[in-house]
Simulated scan of single mutants.
Amino acid sequence: MIKKSSKIIAIDFDGTIVEDKYPEIGKPLIFAFETLKKLQADGHRLILWTYRTGSRLEEAVEFCRKHGVEFYAVNKSYPEEKFDERETSRKIHADLFIDDRNFGGFPGWGVIYQQLYGPSEDIEEILRKNRSKRSFLSKLFKR
């Protein structure tokens, strides 16, 4: 559970932040951008770690920017890193990796939030009580 120490968190794009529609950009997954903004507000460094390159990568970065999330680094461990496949590994340094290809699949941003911050109230119960995204978010992020 994240409390006070800052973490470096690597996050996949297709199937994790947005529905997997590659090479197109899918719709944002529910609570993805809200959770990412909360993580940034708490001082965590977010790295976009995706298969996308070139113009497809630029589209993804811009899509996230338009939704209020700018990453600490994109497809690298830190902003100044230069990739040279002869000298640099594509593996990046991060404390956590959030990806839809994890063993067991992507659990959803509500579950990720609870894993990082601990349960404040059962998410399924909140969803049953509150059908609107706005009321759910106001309870989820009220801390």
Rank of each mutant, 00 (worst) to 15 (best):
L140R: 01
D95I: 06
K129Y: 05
R131K: 08
T53C: 09
V18D: 01
Y113H: 15
R143P: 06
E59K: 14
G118V: 08
R65M: 04
S55Q: 12
K76G: 06
P28C: 13
T50C: 07
K3W: 07
K76M: 13
T88D: 08
A32I: 08
H67R: 07
R128W: 03
I11N: 00
V111P: 01
F141Y: 06
K3S: 10
A60M: 02
I126R: 01
S120E: 03
D84F: 14
S120N: 03
I11S: 00
K7D: 05
V61N: 04
Y51G: 06
D95H: 12
A73L: 14
V111I: 10
G118M: 08
D42N: 15
F136K: 02
L46R: 02
S5R: 08
S132T: 15
L46F: 06
V69P: 00
G108D: 09
H44F: 12
E87H: 15
I17E: 02
F33A: 04
S138N: 14
F97N: 03
K27D: 14
R101N: 12
F141S: 02
S132N: 12
T88K: 10
G104V: 09
K129G: 04
K27F: 12
K38I: 11
R52Y: 15
L29M: 15
T16A: 09
A73I: 10
K82Q: 05
P107I: 14
A32V: 08
L36M: 15
Y78V: 06
F106N: 01
Y113G: 03
R131Y: 04
R128A: 04
K66F: 03
I47D: 01
G54E: 14
D99H: 13
S55L: 13
F71V: 02
E59F: 08
E70S: 14
S135T: 06
K139Y: 06
L46E: 02
G108C: 13
F63L: 05
K37A: 07
S5A: 09
I123V: 11
S138Q: 15
E24A: 12
D12K: 00
G15R: 04
K38D: 14
S132G: 10
P28A: 15
K4T: 12
G43Y: 07
E125D: 12
I2T: 13
K21I: 07
V18W: 01
H44G: 07
F83R: 14
T50P: 03
S89Y: 10
F97I: 11
N75A: 10
E85R: 15
D99M: 14
L29S: 06
A41D: 10
W109P: 00
H44Y: 10
F141T: 01
I92N: 02
Q114D: 11
R56Y: 14
Y22G: 05
E24S: 11
R90G: 03
M1Y: 11
Y22H: 15
I47L: 13
A41N: 12
K7E: 08
L36H: 04
L36T: 03
F13E: 00
V74M: 08
